[in-house]
Design a protein around this nucleic acid. Sequence first.
DNA 1: TATAGTTACTAAAACGTTTAAGTAAAGTAG
DNA 2: CTACTTTACTTAAACGTTTTAGTAACTATA
Lengths: 337, 337
Amino acid sequence: MKITIKDIAKLAGVSTATVSKIVNNKIDDVSDTTVEKVRKIIKEKNYTPNYLARSMVTKKTKTLGLIIPDIRNPFFTDIAKGAEDRANELGYSIFFCNSDDDLEKEIKYINSLIEKQVDGIMLAGAAKRNEDRERKININIPIVSVDRNVYYERIMGSIEIDNYTGAYIAVNHLISKGYERIVFVTGPLETKPSMERLRGYKKALEDSGKKIYNENIIVGTYERNFGEKIIETLDYPLSNVGFFCGNDLIAIGLIKSLKEKKYKVPEEVGVVGFDDIYISLLISPSLTSVSQPSYKMGYESIDLLIKILGNNNEKKNKKILKTRLINRESTNRINLD
Amino acid sequence: MKITIKDIAKLAGVSTATVSKIVNNKIDDVSDTTVEKVRKIIKEKNYTPNYLARSMVTKKTKTLGLIIPDIRNPFFTDIAKGAEDRANELGYSIFFCNSDDDLEKEIKYINSLIEKQVDGIMLAGAAKRNEDRERKININIPIVSVDRNVYYERIMGSIEIDNYTGAYIAVNHLISKGYERIVFVTGPLETKPSMERLRGYKKALEDSGKKIYNENIIVGTYERNFGEKIIETLDYPLSNVGFFCGNDLIAIGLIKSLKEKKYKVPEEVGVVGFDDIYISLLISPSLTSVSQPSYKMGYESIDLLIKILGNNNEKKNKKILKTRLINRESTNRINLD
DNA sequence: TATAGTTACTAAAACGTTTAAGTAAAGTAG
DNA sequence: CTACTTTACTTAAACGTTTTAGTAACTATA
């Protein structure tokens, strides 16, 4: 049988109220001798309070939900790690959920988190959204969205990165390296990051006097498989083509298939990824990529979420983090200027 | 204000007991008309029960803890994913904890999970153990350990893999490829998997009539950094050396540094990893590795844990899963037999 | 027609905390 | 010495469920 506050109270010859105060360090009201006596018994008996019971009355569980699309994508893994570290620092626990990039599963998880009375949710949404569906979901706790924008009510804050500038710089880099045809390979365009990157892609082309062709914008999924299959679908020669990929997984798949077809990277074909995941520096040729501060995104999201839980001011918080280009072998050809 | 069972009861003109039965589908005792009426109101009002309150009386939270050393290691990521999938299937939520491979942090998490009243814990322990310290920790819920063995009380089951045979086959493979000096590069030998692999390594050498030299057993950490630094420490020529690495991260670091020093893999030097993480097939040369069923390990662990929660039979459950060797480029030299 | 059994409910305790309000005893001011 | 304040407590309600034991109203049996 687990030991409770009542047992401690009885052993110490005081009321549970007194023990409770001591446990929670609200001891203005308690004599030093009592504090000492009770603390000793608590230690002896190895008493720890039952958080469920506490939460019932305080209405705070010190628990958060974290929903990400795919924990096997190192980008989200880093976010998760950042989130966990910050939560831990602030004394919160995290319920962990993988949506498998499926909106319905995401919604199922949100509901289940609410039932479990989490104080708030940090959400990296599934890629394909559905505004009408989302607006219908009844949510009574704050959500902070990270990376991708979503349409639920109660989105109280968001942590994003500057995808537009990130893409702009990446495409510019390819152009400066002399690649002629610049191809944008992206996951679903439903997400704001994808759209923003497309915008950056287009602007960079424009600014350097290049025309925009729809056939150079290839839409698929954010998976390695998709990257591997791209070149099969292209009907033009790949010499002097620069690929700007929506994430590193696509880029890695693409490079793999390019190598298999004996294309030379970066001499003939250039490849830039997005995310700068850990693998990017291990593959050969190593991958030039737009680095997102993924760990920081997770860390800051939880920080923001808990801040929101503190103040109940209802103003929306938004934070946009910067990217930077990590220059590696996959675009490292002799500059042709 | 959140709607409670009392609100529903009042609206339906029945007692909370009746509503409770309907919510939990124990309706033998309830008339069809009442069931229907109450269900309708529940739906209308969007009522969902408060799990905290429920848990207070049932003493079950339908919540588990998952502790792993490092979520950035894809091996553990896969375990986590398998765990989450199975937990989700069985209606459990998971508190997620990274121990950073630090025993003290692990213990802190165990205590915090117990305070949060999880029903059980699935633990992939930190590498460096301390039996005395662990035996002192007061644990009142079942733990299933995965991969690594630990000394806490209440370890009710474990999922391991056959590290001995895995290592034996890997080393045999190197020998059969004609590498002369077989070097074992491992993380801390405190863990049972490390010890078992060492045993397999030695047995394979013995069985093929090779001598065992201590200088061919290099102990460090299970990190890529360590792998990168190994060859600096060796004072013999690396021609015809076969490295058997304790995990893929070490192997990947090693290959990276070998390439930098212009050693030819696999022609001069062979490398075998352990874990078969996702990256192994993406690097160049792709890595021959002992594949662990990591996803399955996570999945089976949760399955076992929940099974243990069901029966309270106290017999210890142990399951040993098989490995297999994935043959790739890093050992793919012409066979010299 | 009395009795037993069944059906469809309800009352209230219990889970382990926190906290607002109350109180007796001791200390202080005038 | 009285009245007020402070100190160090306690009492009991509340949080939102589940569950045991009870009960009133029917129905079936002999």
